[in-house]
Design a protein around this nucleic acid. Structure first.
Lengths: 344, 344
DNA sequence: TTTAGCACTCTATCAAGAAGAGTGCTAACA
DNA sequence: TGTTAGCACTCTTCTTGATAGAGTGCTAAA
């Protein structure tokens, strides 16, 4: 089952070429390459062997060979060389992400954009998972008239808020009291625990503002609940149309509708969050819609706590080496920015 | 130049049919329709006349006729019958929009989705134009440690906020003072006037917190400035792929990249905001990229103040009558929801 | 004025043939 | 024994030509 050194060399050349062009690679094309000074006939023999071992595939008899998923796996695991990004690329990432410090949404959006721009693929960014984050503080602030803002502060430094209606005659003191009481209840708890605790607390309260408290609780629960649907941000969704293998509108449509069912994307991004880099090639994906696509994801964190993941999705023929470099650098940049966020 | 009653009838039938199918309409197809009991030969004669008058076009000699932009214009102005929406459709809109009361973003997103879903076209929704809205209140609230939230309240009932850094040792009293002073400065002014006034005020201040105030001012200005780029929300961007005339990937790509340059969309939506409904057919669009597309837009308002617009974009062959009904009803629904928002 | 009839035009579709790319196998060579 | 040149073979793609079908424009009759 092992393959020889020369076969490895040939395989790498084929993968490199196929990633670049998307056209099945012929023996003559390969023999013309400088690094391989072997005749096309010899290459043909080796290719036949590689095909038998399951590393190569042939769309039809008189076409060149293209890598199988197994070949990509080998390529990713041992063959490819991950090179550093160019100065320009680093500059681009820094400029794009750096200027977006502020709201978390901006960072997520910018990450999605930067990823798709640099890889020419559709990018996925999972929103920070509040479920893992803990609440630190809840504050109710009267804005004007009947409107008040409920502000949630997480231990990760993130802030979320929601507008609610309050009785016009409600006392400022009362807001302060609620804020403190809510904070006490939820502080240092994750979402589910906090929700549990909140319900108990409100049920216990039997004061005159019961209706208001229930309304408040409702909006609190709705807003700190992690919503799968909302939590995936996409970038470069139309990049796929650039690829010759998606010139068929039907195929492109399938891909684009896959992107609309965010549940799938969500599960891809969450299940991947155990390891640093996760590369799923073709049939390695559980979802049937992804059998001829690859997904590469990485995690991002605040401090040493994993709070989300991001990555790209595209045809199995993708430049894995380059993608890894990009993800690595972008991940590091995000960590840096979020660390700054955390610095209270 | 005038056309006869019968020609009008024929033209309407052609437009109706072509909107439905997208295939050039032949004389025999028309003669088979019940409402027109004329022979195909007669129709052919009439069609020749209509072509001469510029209402019909022929892709090639042995094909049927299709409506020109001029025909669509006539159709929209006098021929089409706008019918009421079905109960199901009304229910759909109400369910979708009604449940999204809360943040303005949700309403805008929901509107975009509802529009594209009901029309099968790409929808555009302009974010409420803060430039026209006036500020009512600015409030700085310490959140925790070095973080504070600057909250902007508009006379439209909308609320925007931004997270900023503040010196950890800054007094609560000082926040109150700043809030009041900022509010006084910007209250009842539009954006540009408020910005002008703010600059003057800060320049005047020479106290110890000058650096902080400048930082604050910066973030204030950045956040209340109307950003064209950010202000257009799209829905159903991939709907275009369903249309046979966009089976060509190249065409689809062009359309999709048009959607990415939000400046164009922004200008379409803003220039249209003078009248209730705005219908631009084919070459009536100033932008060269839109020469074979139509754009239908409507405005939405709070009270009697126009604050934004929304609409759909697609091939000139679109169901104008239906689109008008949808826009009308959705517009009314938005107004209702926003009125509730305004009810402080 | 309307309609039936017919020649004409253009497109779309299909089959057949030619060109090109690439392979697999065999035989010769180092 | 491994490598290479040569050649027949296969499959795709492109081109060409023929054909059917849709629809028109025009003429002549009703």
């Amino acid at each position: 089952m092992d393959i020889t050194k020369r076969q490895t060399l040939i395989l790498k050349a084929i993968v490199d070429d196929y990633i670049l062009t998307g056209i099945p690679v012929g023996s003559r094309t390969l023999s013309k390459k400088e690094e391989l000074s072997i005749s096309s006939a010899t290459i043909r023999n080796e290719m036949a062997d590689l095909e038998e071992s399951g590393y190569l595939e042939q769309p039809h008899t008189s076409a060149g060979r293209m890598p199988s998923d197994k070949a990509y796996r080998l390529y990713v695991d041992t063959l490819m060389r991950v090179s550093a990004l160019s100065k320009d690329e680093i500059e681009f990432i820094k400029a794009y992400l750096g200027s977006r410090i502020g709201q978390i949404e901006n960072i997520v959006d910018a990450t999605a954009k930067v990823l798709s721009e640099l890889t020419n693929l559709t990018s996925l960014v999972l929103f920070p998972q509040f479920a893992n984050a803990q609440l630190r503080r809840v504050q109710v602030v009267r804005i004007v008239g009947k409107k008040a803002l409920v502000i949630f502060v997480f231990n990760t430094g993130m802030v979320k808020d929601v507008l609610i209606d309050v009785p016009a005659d409600m006392d400022e003191k009362y807001f302060e009291m609620i804020s403190n009481s809510l904070t006490e209840t939820v502080a240092n708890r994750g979402f589910f625990e906090a929700a549990e605790q909140l319900k108990k607390t409100v049920m216990g309260e039997m004061n005159s503002q019961r209706a208001f408290m229930e309304m408040l609780l409702q909006s609190v629960l709705e807003n700190i609940r992690p919503k799968a649907e909302k939590e995936v941000v996409l970038g470069g969704t139309r990049k796929i149309l650039e690829y010759p293998e998606y010139q068929d509108v039907e195929k492109a449509k399938n891909f684009l509708s896959l992107l609309e069912t965010k549940d799938t994307l969500y599960s891809i991004l969450t299940q991947a969050s155990d390891v640093e880099f996760n590369i799923k090639i073709g049939h390695e994906n559980a979802e049937s819609a992804l059998q001829d696509m690859s997904v590469v994801t990485a995690t991002y964190r605040i401090g040493d706590q994993k709070i989300g993941s991001f990555g790209v999705i595209g045809p199995t023929r993708m430049d894995y080496a380059r993608i890894i470099s990009v993800l690595e650098f972008v991940g590091a940049s995000i960590n840096e920015i979020l660390k700054y966020h955390l610095d209270t």
